[in-house]
Design a protein around this nucleic acid. Structure first.
Length: 397
RNA sequence: GCUGGAAUCGUCUAGUGGCAAUGACAAGAGACUGUAAAUCUCUCGCCUUCGGGCUUCGUAGGUUCGAGUCCUACUUCCAGCA
């Protein structure tokens, strides 16, 4: 079982530590989206420097390329990417269901690769196997998202998610059983490294990195009775934690999370899947009992020139920043704000320099990581409410 | 000087008689939430009570119901020849 310690509790909100084989995650925490084992525009060293504690990669993307086998042969996601810290993988469910021409059967999902059109299938079992090969510390169950938000579709998708969860759990335990002495024996034969000089055979005898954990995913869309039912089912399963999926807007999220997280067992961590583009999502999530977040928004918006400041988001490409020789955010200690002006970043974006996206991504990722870090500190220090009020009042005006 | 050719929205460009006129870039703004996103959308002659009105394709004339498109002259530029 994944070790999770609660440090402070305040209603549903809590702080804690998730102990993974690759290190601890102090929660609540923002997890960087590294879909293809890379955070777009950023190096892993930059991610460490900006304060990220963990990354989340995607099984769908990594299965397509370079393949789960290759990552296992490289020593696993954390080693392959040189992140070397705690890692999550998403199951691929979300991505597959957002592709066109997906065929869902009870068995799994049939779809075409967006890269070369190959006809592929992913099942609860194959997702689990791939995630074990990829070797993240924490895996997500393979779930089904309804395409529409009508009740019957949502209920059907939720029920399928539950049936698939039982299969995920069974497969996960089967794969867990193949571990011998904390070492993943799935990998047979000599390790083949993708490139570079020959590396020595790893001594895994006291290396617990191959312990891997499973989160169930709660579905139910915008229907709180389904959410409650899904949470009860997920809670009944022998899993290490929970992902809360299928959330697309902050509307109704507080109430939904309140219901779900009052049902989910307190002693296991909860991950709010895909939310965190708007700072308010992080506050609503944390105060309603979510421990980790991931979101592509901060880095995507950074690449598109939309930058967080404590006074709200700005588009640095706007003409008004052409002659603005002040830091983006004076009270920010990220690499961008410490060294460069708005005018310079504006210029980098206007001239389409790669550096623009790098610096902007450093800032935005740092901003959300730090915002959650401060939420954590404020919960520990008992001043969450005032921190939240000050932040939101200033940010959203 | 002669002979050809060319002049279209900030830039390049489509357009050879039929209702401001193509595309790209630039510019102005917006969107983005488990990443098919270094992406996408809108605006881009002037005015508008959003119905429409007005002025445009080097300049000035002309032919025509109608001209960026045809004719004449001029201006500027390019190429070749002196």
């Amino acid at each position: 079982m994944l070790k999770y310690d609660i440090i402070t509790k305040n209603g549903l909100a809590r702080t804690g530590v998730i102990h993974t084989p690759h290190g601890d995650i102090h929660t609540p925490a923002f997890v960087g989206a590294a879909t293809r084992a890379a955070v777009k525009a950023l190096t892993m060293q930059q991610m460490r420097d900006l304060g990220s504690q963990a990354i989340l990669a995607n099984t769908y993307h990594l299965v397509l390329t370079p393949g789960a086998e290759l990552i296992r042969n490289a020593g696993g996601l954390a080693e392959f990417s040189s992140w070397r810290g705690p890692t999550f993988t998403d199951s691929g469910g979300f991505q597959i269901f957002s592709l066109p021409d997906v065929k869902i059967t009870e068995q799994g999902a049939r779809f075409k690769s967006h890269i070369n059109g190959d006809k592929l299938e992913m099942t609860p079992e194959s997702s689990m196997q791939a995630q074990w090969s990829i070797g993240a510390d924490i895996h997500m169950a393979f779930d089904h998202l309804a395409k529409s938000d009508n009740y019957d579709d949502m209920k059907e998708a939720m029920e399928r998610t539950h049936r698939w969860l039982e299969r995920c759990v069974a497969e996960h335990q089967k794969l867990l059983g193949k571990m011998v002495g904390g070492r993943n024996m799935l990998s047979e034969g000599p390790k083949t490294w993708p490139s570079g000089p020959e590396r020595p055979e790893q001594d895994c005898s006291d290396h617990p990195k191959t312990e891997q954990y499973l989160y169930a995913v709660v579905q139910g869309g915008s229907f709180n009775d389904l959410r409650a039912e899904s949470a009860r089912f997920a809670a009944s399963q022998p899993v290490d934690g929970f992902g809360i999926g299928g959330v697309f807007t902050a509307d109704g999220m507080a109430e939904m999370l309140h219901i779900v997280n009052n049902i989910l067992p307190e002693n296991k961590p909860r991950h709010l899947l895909g939310m965190g583009q708007e700072p308010i999502d992080l506050f609503v999530g944390a105060e309603n009992g979510c421990d980790t977040f991931d979101c592509v928004g901060p880095t995507r918006m950074a690449r598109n020139g939309s930058l967080y400041t404590l006074d709200g988001r700005i588009n640095i490409k706007n003409a008004k920043y052409k002659n603005d020789f002040t830091p983006l955010m004076p009270d920010c200690d990220c690499e961008l704000c410490r060294n460069y002006t708005r005018a310079y970043l504006h210029h980098l974006f206007r001239t389409d320099e790669i550096t623009a996206k790098i610096l902007a991504s450093i800032h935005n990722e740092h901003f959300v990581v730090q915002t959650v870090d401060r939420i954590r500190d404020s919960i520990d220090n008992g001043n969450y409410d005032s921190y939240k009020q000050d932040f939101l009042q200033r940010y959203y005006g």
